[in-house]
Nucleic acid binder design. Sequence first.
DNA 1: TCCATTCGATAAATCGATTTTTCGTTCTTG
DNA 2: CAAGAACGAAAAATCGATTTATCGAATGGA
Lengths: 358, 358
Amino acid sequence: MAQPEARQRRPSIHDVASHAGVSAATVSKVLAGVTTVKPENAQRVFDAVEHLGYRVDPLASDMRRAKRRIIGAIMPEFESEFFGSMVTELEGLAEQRGYTLVAASSRESETREKEILARMHDWRVAGVVLAPVRNEHGPAAAFMKAHGMTGVLIDRVLSDDAFDTVSADSAAASAEVARMLIGNGHSHILVIGLAEQAATVRARLEGFRSQALALNPSVRIDVITSEVSVAPLRSSLRDYFGRGERPTAVYSLLLKGTLVALSEFRRRGWHCPDDISLVGFDDAEWMQVTWPAIAAVVQPVRQIASEAMNLLFRRVEGDVGPPTARLEPCQVLMRESVGSPGSGPHSGGGDRQQPPLS
Amino acid sequence: MAQPEARQRRPSIHDVASHAGVSAATVSKVLAGVTTVKPENAQRVFDAVEHLGYRVDPLASDMRRAKRRIIGAIMPEFESEFFGSMVTELEGLAEQRGYTLVAASSRESETREKEILARMHDWRVAGVVLAPVRNEHGPAAAFMKAHGMTGVLIDRVLSDDAFDTVSADSAAASAEVARMLIGNGHSHILVIGLAEQAATVRARLEGFRSQALALNPSVRIDVITSEVSVAPLRSSLRDYFGRGERPTAVYSLLLKGTLVALSEFRRRGWHCPDDISLVGFDDAEWMQVTWPAIAAVVQPVRQIASEAMNLLFRRVEGDVGPPTARLEPCQVLMRESVGSPGSGPHSGGGDRQQPPLS
DNA sequence: TCCATTCGATAAATCGATTTTTCGTTCTTG
DNA sequence: CAAGAACGAAAAATCGATTTATCGAATGGA
């Protein structure tokens, strides 16, 4: 465990070799666990490694491989709990296999997504875990195909003809939300979302709609979506309520929508669940400490990450079977923000202790 | 822009060289912008690069440099908005300078922190942005010193004798919180935090305490901290309120504490700000959509990231001046969770529409 | 006209590993 | 006892760039 206070140059494999009195090739073999080395020499190598504090340079080590022991991860953002913990999980799983994870944020831009991908291709990453900005049909996946990269698509995808996909079972979870809301007697429900993430959002919407209609054919389901950002969604929602529409429940297909809904409720002085019920896709830590606690669909981050990495490494190791499309089951957390219609005043706002904001 | 559908082997600098009819050295020089190349040959190189779609292999390119064009970032976690956006910012800044950011999560473990650092040292990163789990005196910083790594410490640090540090001006922000609370007439305030992050938390506590005492010498300030995790903090808080302690305001020194406080308020059926006021260090998106909106100290993520990268690159480029300790000013967002004591019932719970949880 | 510069470009060394090839011993076996 | 197989380790090639040393041709001055 000698820590030579030497800060100058790190010892290379040749330093170890000369110190142990063997060749660099032998050192490499010993460290790789090759058994055709005389035990005595192996021991000398281990001693030299210990004495010099030698560690393999991963960069040099990767030089000769076509695929470097690097996994790239591209997420639309890092700021949310979902993608944050996704990166944490992916990092741990890559590390377990001796790979380094390089994570990058596409910042919800497909252009940037492609640039990052090109850079990862430059690095000759062994594989990429891509959470596309929009869906599996974007330019990023096309780039990966065109360059023969191996990868797995996660989250905002359903299935692909070239890559394995792993995502939350949005449709099933949404169906359960439908059962929950219809079961509570709601017959006028507003669904909000961002349409750009086509695949997933559509699955969530259809899963919800078909189940809701199956349970109550006369249910009224309004849908408000916006193309890109949340700003138009907010104003559409404001218009909608402004027109006097009074659904008894709102189902938000994504976290940002849940925030928008809550802030619109605030403006109007509506309380959950007395005035209106709310369920959101995507859970967050704060949702259980607010009053009321917000009902939410919990995505199985661990399972998605773990399954994605399993599939990815299978491909890295050469599996060429047809691509699979996995859907991991979600959990729907019923919380206080969901109630039965009519159990509260639902006055239309303005009569509560807390005045609406200007 | 020919996209050769070739997926086999990427072109190397030698392919470009032979295609342009020059040597690899010339190609390298042209791409590096060396001017001693005949314009005609330079053009041929550019054409070949274009034609083959050649891109430099960053790994091979870095091989000969002592410092690779890689920056390491180590954060205690990725799940929070603060560290999530920190990583996003750092990534962008590194990329601007042609560096790749490799981010890793220490998961609040000093052991892991050191392991990650060792791995980054193996990669010969040019520099490290370290947000230590505890403070600047931990084993990670010691490791960096012992191995002559260049780095910057951020967030949970105040100053260091070897590294530049950048953090939010916790003391000043806390003083402003004190002014706010004292100004609103609070004379019994509870401060909660995690003691492990010694430097920062102590600065926040002292900044608050000294300002509060200066404004009202008879103010009562209770402090509850826990060593490592939030669980003991939660039970201490529960005991504290259970003993009948009734501060009129709570100042949480960190986000997790804010969540704990809110959930304890929930249990007891206390509402902000009628029953008790709340301010938290660290802002989050959801805090403005809850009812009430939660007052919070906003940390200057962009400034911290940008300043950290500036300092880091100065060091990477060889600056050897004495280490600096920067404090970036915070913004205190006054929101509805803060009121004046006595303006609400403060009954001690149980009399509100929403019953406390079991 | 001849030698000394200068210019531009190539050959070769280098970075730090891995992998293939080569080579010298020792052990079998006919 | 000699030829061949088996073994262990060293030498050399390789990965893809950068950088230094080298070299030939053109230019300049004496």
